[in-house]
Design a protein around this nucleic acid. Structure first.
Length: 273
DNA sequence: CGGTGGACCTGCTGGC
DNA sequence: TGCCAGCAGGTCCACC
């Protein structure tokens, strides 16, 4: 589900809602996420005031007093939703964080591929999940030169290079496919075959497509909702992802679906060469 | 080392 | 109507 635009949308929403609130209750109803939620999770949150909310790649960071950070990854089907405490709980509401008695932040995740942990600032920066992340796509350190140096001699397909979080942090299958459409490159192309010009175009499209998706508050393909449980709108603007058999919005040719590894890739056979 | 394929989960859809 | 296969936005690990 959540790639960078979805996590950024949630981050912006929570930033308006959380800072200044105190965590008055924590309930871990299902600790079996991708890795087990630590036994100290609740005690490390309890009683702390939230200072700020941030994002690194697809990770959401909730900064607390006492140099602590609540680190959250939503996996494939995770939602992090701010609601009135009186709202009935639902199946798969795995973690409930009570705020000042009146509201709750609920972590909901049917497939349980997510991550929830509370760590110190120093632990955060030494975690492999953070250390191995490439630059943010909006950071000037992500550019054509970097992408070209990684693509040169790389035998993988360009779609797989783009969703490698070490290359650039935050791209997943939807946006990798959309970005490749905008660059006119087929997702199945071997990275080493792309020349400097194509790579420059590609690197340039990365922040463009992501900014546009953020403007539409992300893609609600099925599970994704923002911090207040509202749908995103970018699914109405997708050019290729999940559009196999439908007409290309630019040239009218039918969009194709192919498997790369275990995952689908989508492209327009005319617009992408 | 680089690259690939499967495992981890639940839920939904489409074919029979 | 039921059953089963296949698929889904991500990450990590074993294996070649």
């Amino acid at each position: 589900m959540p790639e960078l635009p979805e996590v950024e949308t949630i981050c912006r929403g929570l930033r308006q809602l959380l800072p200044g609130r105190r965590i008055t209750n924590v309930e871990v109803r299902e600790p079996r996420l991708r890795s087990r939620v630590d036994g100290d999770f609740s005690s490390r949150l309890l009683g702390r005031t939230i200072l700020a909310v941030g994002r690194r790649g697809k990770y959401l960071l909730v900064f607390l007093e006492g140099e602590r950070v609540w680190l959250s990854h939503l996996g494939m089907s995770g939602k992090l939703i701010f609601v009135a405490a009186s709202k009935p709980r639902e199946k798969h509401d795995h973690i409930i964080v009570g705020l000042d008695g009146s509201h709750e932040l609920r972590y909901h995740d049917p497939r349980r591929f997510g991550l929830a942990a509370v760590v110190s600032h120093s632990e955060l920066s030494s975690m492999p999940q953070m250390r191995n992340l490439g630059p943010d796509p909006f950071d000037s350190r992500f550019n054509g030169a970097r992408l070209y140096s990684l693509a040169r001699g790389c035998r993988r397909r360009i779609r797989d290079l783009l969703i490698d979080q070490r290359v650039v942090a935050g791209l997943g299958n939807i946006y990798a496919n959309e970005i490749l459409f905008r660059a006119g490159i087929r997702p199945t192309t071997r990275a080493w075959k792309l020349g400097r010009g194509s790579i420059e175009t590609l690197a340039n499209r990365v922040p463009k497509v992501l900014r546009e998706a953020i403007r539409w508050c992300g893609t609600s393909f099925s599970d994704y909702r923002d911090a207040e449980d509202r749908f995103g709108e970018f699914q109405n603007h997708l050019n290729v992802y999940d559009r196999a058999g439908e007409k290309c919005r630019v040239c009218g040719v039918k969009i194709k679906r192919v498997a790369i590894g275990n995952r689908s890739a989508f492209y327009c056979p005319r617009c992408q060469r």
